[in-house]
C-alpha cells in the first residue's frame, strides 16, 4: 500500500455517540480492501481540526452536545472545513452533523441556534420525533439506501441544493419527501449512526471521489447485510402502501 488517506472524526465525544464511529471504520476497512491504507484520527473539541485530511466525519448527538460542538467549531474549525470542501476533501455529515453545517438549527427548547453556514440549509424543529427505518432511491449511488432515523429536525435545502435521495420509506429531511444533501464535497443524511455500514456503496462514492478505484472491493458480509436491510425496507414500504399511507411526513408538514 503506497497511498494512505486520513479520516478525521470531528469531536466524537460531542457528536458521534450513536455508533457514528462506525462510518470512519467502514471507510478505512473498504479503503484497505481497495489497497489504500487509512488512518482514522478522532479529534476532540479541545484540539484544532487538522487542515489536510481527506475525509471529515461529523456525527449525530443530542441537543446540548450539538450546541457545544458548533461552539467549538465556530471560527477556525469552520474555516478549516470550508477550505477542505473547496479543495475537494469529503465531509460526511450525519443528522445533527448535517444540521450544524447549515445556517440555523433548533436548540434544546426549539430556539434557533446559528450554524456554521457552510451549506444553504435551514433546520427547524418538527412537531414530533421521527423514529424508524428509512429508505430512499439515490441518484448518487443508483441504488436504494437504507438507514434508521431518530431526530426531530425539519431540514430545508435552498439554492437548488440536491438531496441524497427520494424517500421510499420514512421521513428523512421531513419536507419534500427527500433525505439529506449532496454536493461535490459533502454527503449529509438523516440515516443516523453507522450509515455507511448499511450502505457500502455510499462509502465507495466517498472513496472514488478521493480517486480510489473501488472496483476490486468485495466484502460478502457487507453485501449480505445491506441486501437484508433493503429487503426489509422494501417490504415495510409495500406494507405501508397497502395500508394506504405514506410516511408521517406528508401528514405533519
Amino acid at each position: 500500500m503506497t497511498r494512505s488517506i486520513e479520516i478525521v472524526v470531528v469531536h466524537p465525544e460531542l457528536l458521534g455517540t450513536y455508533g457514528d464511529g462506525g462510518n470512519a471504520e467502514v471507510l478505512s476497512h473498504r479503503a484497505r480492501l481497495a489497497g489504500v491504507d487509512a488512518v482514522v484520527h478522532p479529534v476532540a473539541h479541545t484540539e484544532p481540526l487538522p487542515s489536510g485530511a481527506d475525509v471529515y466525519c461529523i456525527g449525530g448527538g443530542e441537543d446540548v452536545a450539538q450546541i457545544a460542538c458548533v461552539q467549538a467549531l465556530r471560527g477556525r474549525g469552520a474555516d478549516t472545513l470550508a477550505a477542505a470542501m473547496a479543495r475537494g476533501a469529503q465531509v460526511l455529515a450525519i443528522c445533527a452533523g448535517l444540521q450544524i453545517l447549515g445556517d440555523v438549527f433548533p436548540g434544546s427548547r426549539g430556539e434557533p441556534v446559528e450554524g456554521l453556514s457552510l451549506l444553504p440549509v435551514t433546520t427547524h424543529r418538527g412537531v414530533e420525533r421521527l423514529i424508524g427505518e428509512i429508505a430512499m432511491r439515490s441518484p448518487l449511488t443508483g441504488t436504494m439506501l437504507t438507514g434508521f432515523e431518530n431526530h426531530r429536525g425539519i431540514t430545508e435545502l435552498r439554492d437548488g441544493l440536491q438531496p441524497l435521495g427520494s424517500m421510499t420509506l420514512g421521513n428523512g429531511n421531513g419536507i419534500g419527501a427527500v433525505d439529506g444533501v449532496v454536493t461535490d464535497s459533502v454527503i449529509g443524511t438523516y440515516m443516523h449512526g453507522p450509515a455507511l455500514a448499511r450502505n457500502p456503496e455510499l462509502a465507495d462514492v466517498i472513496l472514488r471521489r478521493l480517486g480510489i478505484d473501488t472496483t476490486a472491493v468485495h466484502d460478502d458480509a457487507a453485501v449480505a447485510f445491506a441486501a437484508e436491510r433493503r429487503a426489509v425496507a422494501s417490504s415495510m414500504a409495500a406494507q405501508q402502501q397497502r395500508r394506504g399511507r405514506r410516511g408521517p411526513s406528508a401528514r405533519q408538514w
Binding site: 455517540t17 450513536y18 455508533g19 457514528d20 462506525g22 434508521f148 443516523h192 449512526g193 453507522p194
Partner: peptide, 9 residues
C-alpha cells in the same frame, strides 16, 4: 431497541 447502531459503540 429497533436500531442496531449501538453495535458500533
Amino acid at each position: 431497541g429497533r436500531d442496531t447502531s449501538w453495535l458500533w459503540d
